[in-house]
Amino acid sequence: MSPAKRSVVITSLVVLLGTGVFWWGTDGFTALTAETARRVEILRSPRPLPAVTLEDQDGNVFNLRDYRGKLLAVDFIFTRCTTLCRSMGMIFKQIRDLIPPESLGRDFLLISISFDPDHDDPASLKKYGQTYGADGKIWRIARVPDKAELKSLLESFGIVVIPDEFGGYEHNTALHLVGRDGKLRLISDIDKAVPFAEQVVALL
């Protein structure tokens, strides 16, 4: 084979292979960030969640498994958060108010899970809940007291929490929907409260 021909053939192979790797590494050019990838993957195959023990704002201890058979909206917070979690509270409130009242508590519930159990005792959870009108039944604010369980819960949701320079945290914030089978089935942007609620209503 002449050098020129060889060059053309190998270059084409490289382009083909390189494009293939990009295709594979970005879920068909759709997911350029890990956050998008997480959402795409959940849509494709809903993910089972660990049966972790939680403690809510009233000190009640319960299990994530107790929500089987119901639709559950989940977000992750820490109560000292002064930025995104504030709006998260408002967004969850908005979602709750968009769901038909007869389904609330029976077929659809909400839970805000704190990933900072050291600071967030039931008292601070209660204070956070009161700010947004979380009643502790339809909408619980809870923490995972056990560190190992918390870690496995965050991992299965794909939540990455990193400390920031102000003693707080930064984390990927999103709206999560857990199906009746206990599997994580949908992750949306936090500014998509209305479409999220519509999805829930369609599933009721």
């Binding site: 192979l13 490289v14 382009v15 390189g18 990009f22 960030t33």
Partner: peptide, 19 residues
Amino acid sequence: IPCVVVALFASSYWMLPRA
């Protein structure tokens, strides 16, 4: 040419935030 193209692909890949 194949060398340059390989380098372009590999370096671009590691510029993806996901990578």
